[in-house]
């Protein structure tokens, strides 16, 4: 679930408020989005993919964590903005779709992406 909105990185572009398919965020008074409905988060990671400044972090657990993860540690591990980088979104990056050739699966004997 969405755990972190990093206020100091956020540029108040409203992108996450706009794209979240389950309407988890609301715009805060200062423009920085608030996690208003965390329980509705479906852990799809798409807000992270769309955030232009890597200010969001979705933890893999489908329930809220007792406390948000440590930002310094996430930064060190490259997890903030890591998904956006992998799918190749952002200036100067190659779209991940260009490289998305899946393995030859043992049961189907065909290359699949699914």
């Amino acid at each position: 679930m969405i755990e972190i909105v990093l206020g100091e990185r956020c540029i108040a572009c409203d992108k996450c408020v706009e794209v979240c398919p389950t309407d988890v965020f609301v715009r805060g008074d200062d423009g920085v989005p608030l996690i208003a409905r965390q329980g509705d988060c479906q852990t799809c990671y798409l807000c992270e993919a769309y955030c232009p400044v890597d200010a969001l972090y979705v933890a893999p657990a489908v329930h809220p964590l007792p406390a948000p993860p440590d930002v310094a540690e996430l930064t060190e591990k490259g997890l903030l903005g890591g998904y956006r980088e992998q799918i190749g979104w952002g200036r100067g990056r190659t779209p991940g779709a260009r490289r998305a050739v899946g393995p030859v699966m043992p049961t189907t004997s065909q290359v699949i992406v699914s």
């Binding site: 798409l46 993919a49 799918i87 979104w89 779209p95 991940g96 779709a97 998305a100 050739v101 899946g102 290359v111 699949i112 992406v113 699914s114």
Partner: peptide
């Protein structure tokens, strides 16, 4: 290779 699609893209 047109056999797959990445959802976000």
């Amino acid at each position: 290779i047109r056999r797959g699609l990445q959802g976000p893209e």
